[in-house]
């Protein structure tokens, strides 16, 4: 499968990357591991005229731990994270999410930044141009219909990042760099909830690093998929708990994971919470299993995560 015409530039610094972007008239795409981007370009889901390789930017790689926080460079690979003592010892939620992402060879290529900025997915969308043209372009493609539901001007594509679900439960923040400088925001803030355009980033901005509040954090991660490897989640969930309480996140259904603050983990409260999760999830028929099933799994995952965390603690 051949790529359409595009140019390639490797940036040595954030400044250089942003400069390349600025010169591209907004037609460039940042390129880290490429495990999400390259297939999309091959399928003509994205048609950048230039890809800007960020892998040469050294300040974007590495895992740092202080008492207050963990700082993870956006170019750190999922495999590096999985094999990091720091992550495994202190952030089991993130560790598990890494271990369950795709397969090892792709974990070695895929980066944390790329993973959380992966575009949303849909069984009707992630197809070749020929397939989509034959079917008719959907809303996310610039048409007006959603093939999965038959609805007009709506999109239900799923944000399928496993790492994102874990990072949201850990209360992560992002450091974002753009032409006007650096800003820091809650990860949750950049999620628009719009599957057709899932991220609230300004043109040309780069996620430089991910910041996770410090300390040893109890938690767990769950993912439902058909195969044991090379599979995106049909639904995923993460729970992280510390002295101040816990945060439950259920993701991979729709474009924005559901985030819940959990004050107590008494059985009765957990049951109520799991019902809330069930009611909040609005899956549609756009994966290989039924939407009803995915909705039910929200409840199952919620209970399982909290139980697992209790046991671990």
């Amino acid at each position: 499968m051949i790529l359409p015409k595009l140019d390639y530039k490797k940036a040595k610094s954030l400044e250089e990357a942003i400069e390349y972007f600025e010169k591209s008239n907004g037609e460039a795409a940042y390129f880290a591991g490429g495990t999400d981007l390259i297939p999309r370009i091959k399928l003509r889901l994205r048609t950048p005229s230039l890809v800007i390789d960020l892998k040469g930017i050294e300040e974007m790689v590495g895992i740092k731990k202080t008492d207050e926080m963990y700082v993870i460079g956006a170019n750190t690979t999922i495999f590096e994270l999985k094999n990091s003592e720091i992550i495994r010892e202190n952030l089991p939620t993130l560790y598990e999410a890494c271990a369950q992402t795709s397969c090892e060879v792709l974990q070695m290529r895929g980066t944390i930044g790329g993973n959380i900025l992966q575009d949303t997915r849909c069984l009707f969308y992630n197809k070749s141009l020929t397939w989509r043209r034959a079917k008719g372009f959907c809303y996310k493609m610039g048409g007006n219909v959603c093939h999965a539901t038959g609805g007009k001007n709506v999109c239900y594509a799923n944000y399928s990042s496993d790492l994102a679900t874990a990072l949201l439960s850990l209360g992560s923040k992002l450091v974002i760099v753009g032409k006007d400088g650096q800003r820091k925001c809650d990860f949750e803030e950049i999620l628009t909830g719009k599957p057709e355009k899932p991220f609230n980033l300004r043109q040309g901005e780069i996620v430089k690093e991910i910041i996770i509040p410090g300390g040893k954090r109890q938690g767990a991660f769950e993912k439902i998929r058909i195969r044991g490897s090379i599979d995106y989640p049909l639904i995923n969930g993460a729970f992280t708990m510390d002295s101040k309480g816990g945060k439950l996140v259920v993701g991979a259904i729709g474009s924005k994971p559901c985030v819940y603050s959990v004050e107590t983990i008494e059985e009765e409260r957990v049951k109520i919470l799991s019902e809330t999760v069930f009611n909040d999830l609005k899956p549609v028929n756009n994966t290989v299993v039924s939407p009803v099933y995915r909705k039910k799994m929200g409840k199952v995952i919620a209970i399982k995560l909290i139980e697992k965390t209790k046991k671990g603690a």
């Binding site: 499968m1 390639y8 490797k10 490429g34 390259i38 297939p39 390789d53 070695m108 290529r109």
Partner: peptide, 10 residues
């Protein structure tokens, strides 16, 4: 690496 996902220029 999956060589189908890598640009040669990389």
């Amino acid at each position: 690496v999956r060589s189908c996902l890598i640009l040669t220029l990389e």
